[in-house]
Structure formats: structure tokens, C-alpha cells
Amino acid sequence: MQTDLNELRITPSQLEKVTGLEVTDILMGKVYRPTVFRSTKRFLSFLLTETLTLGLILIFCLPLSLVIGRGLGILTTSNTVPFLLTALGIAIALFAIWNGWTWQKGKGLKTLAHLLDEVDKHNEIIDAVHIIDELGAIQNSTIQVIDREEILKALSATRESLLNALMTEKVLRKHQQFMARRQELFANIETNLATLQTLQANQQANEYGQLLNEALQIGMSLRQELEKLDRQ
């Protein structure tokens, strides 16, 4: 990937820095992202994580109850099965509590989840531009690079907006009260959105038109999210 495009990508480490949480395809911190149910790959990853968590709880719960049960004289050869079923029930209850806790915590991260989806879309656009660049580089290709500068400018504005929005969300999440910087960040996003709208108006219908439109959609979506935050 070309350096200019690569620089526009929002990397996991940058996300971690601006959100204060470790972000993966399925997790934001310890909370599952709502998008885990939208793609098979992510859903499988979610299932694997859940299985491993349940396995870990079983590894601690079953043998520990075996040791305690024998130590207290509750466990004998005649009541092994009911004892094991009780221990299994405790393990499943702990697993349910863990999931309930993460679900409860996830309720407070809805805005972040939405912003992270927009970041994914932004990175997907960069991938698309990269593919177009590669196809354009092939000799006798019919795909022509019409105005690369404009699309990079649009992506740069989107990137800045996304990072600003993520920072705002982090500030609001951490402090939950009015911060002076919020208005500044909000104004910045508004400016970037105006830039995107101008670019969109100037751009003729071509392979970049669609990408610019997607970038504009991300910008609009960000504004909506921030307006929601502003009302909170």
C-alpha cells in the first residue's frame, strides 16, 4: 500500500490511544461490539471467545468443587453425578453473570460502537482505493485514476473527524460532564463535513464518486452521533 494511503488508515494502536480501550474486530475493552453478529467471521470469533471463557470457568469451578466437596465430606461415590451437576450449574451461572456484566457495560458504549463501525468503513474505503490504484497500475488497464488528490483530501478530513469524535466520546465517557474542548472538536468536525460536501458536489460520476459518497456518509453519521452526545 502506498505511504499516503497507509497514513490515512486508522490503526488499532491509534484507536487504543484515542479510545483508551483495546479495540479488536469483536471487542472494545472487555465488551463485545454489536457487529459480532453481522459477519460470519466475527460471529465465529465471538463463539470461540465465549467457549474459551466457559472452558476457563469450568477448569476452575469443577476441580475446585471436587477438592472442597471431598474436604468437607459432601462428595461421596454415591452422589457424584448430582454433585457434578451442581458444580456445573455454578459454573454456568458464573458464565451468565460474566456475560450479563459485559452486556450491562456495553450499554454505556453504544456511541463508541457506532463510531468504531464508521472507522471500519473508513478503512474499507482506503482498501478500495488501494485496489483501484493497483488495477490502474496494470498496463492497458481501462481503470483510470481520475482525481486521486481529491479522494485523499476527503479521506483525510474523514479521518480527522473520526479521531476527533472518538476523542470527544472518550472525554465524555470519562468525565461525563461539560468540557470546553468538546465545542472545539465539534466545530472541527463541522468544518470537515463542509469540505466533504464541497468535494462531493465537484466530483463527477466515476469510480471515486461512490467512495466520496461513503466518506460523506461517515461524516454525516458522525455529526448525528455527536449531536446525540451533545443532547445527553
Binding site: 476452575f60 469443577l62 476441580p63 475446585l64
Partner: peptide
């Protein structure tokens, strides 16, 4: 398969 990891991890705990 359950007891062996438990042995190490519970000892550690």
C-alpha cells in the same frame, strides 16, 4: 483435560 490445567492454575491461585 479439565483436571490438568486446574492443577497448575489452582496451585498458582
Amino acid at each position: 483435560a479439565i483436571k490438568l490445567p486446574a492443577l497448575y492454575l489452582i496451585t498458582l491461585t
